[in-house]
Design a protein around this nucleic acid. Sequence first.
DNA 1: ATGGTAGGACACCTA
Length: 291
Amino acid sequence: MRSDCSGAGEALGIRDPFLPEPVAVSVTVATWNINSVRLRIDLVTHFLKEHGPDVLCLQETKCQDDQFPLAAFRKAGYAHAAIHGQKGYHGVAVVSRLPIASWSAKSFCGKTDARHVAATLGPEGGGVTVHNFYVPAGGDVPDPLENEKFAHKLSFLDEMKAWGEADRPAASKAILVGDLNVAPLENDVWSHKQMLKVVSHTPIETGKLEAARSGGGWVDAVRTLKPEPEKVYTWWSYRAADWAAADRGRRLDHVWVSPDLAGSLGEVSILREARGWERPSDHVPVMLTLR
DNA sequence: ATGGTAGGACACCTA
């Protein structure tokens, strides 16, 4: 962003031609499990208009790539997209108003599930790579022998850790966001004690998520800016009679940054009010600004 | 101890 004051050098238009082009002074990234992007496209464009993140990462888009509502995003000013969807389930996408230089998608656990997509921004976005994840929810029974969905979740977390250690995605200018379906800390749930045997907060899951984060060298941006013991939630069940009154939330949605970006953390914002919108997702947007 | 809601595809799965 240019300043309005006219310093001598600027007024004369002097720039060192050997310096790289200036990059954006700030980038805001948002993550939101939208639970069907086609059903809730009007909520998404409302959010983009009101909050204007540079990049929005979506999970549970629940549509094939040719059904993704690209035109609505383009109309809202988000002309760039990396989409990785599948029929009916899962599905992730990165939409951006800044150009995307390249993108890719990884498969995990030998499945074709669309649970990861990565986009690298061009110079306008500082060349940052954004990894967008949708970790398996894991079913209801927290026993990998009885419940294959829980076994899949644990394997997925192990593979995230191995990927972080082998490929070193956090080596420079990287952000990892998404619905990781684990609330790792005591104050990431409404009752630590009552949640210890509930999928999303069992010790085996929280241990594996922490191992994936620290093993990859990632910094938990949200907890850096909102440290414990503050309660932080990003999801409230559809099954509560009154979600706001009960307030039995969980912090399932995360924003991690590579260590070289940790000094640039600006602010984090969790849009709790979005849970009260008409026909809401059960997750709300989480936004991080890097300066 | 139990059941409570939501979305997508297609007769039940996932969350």
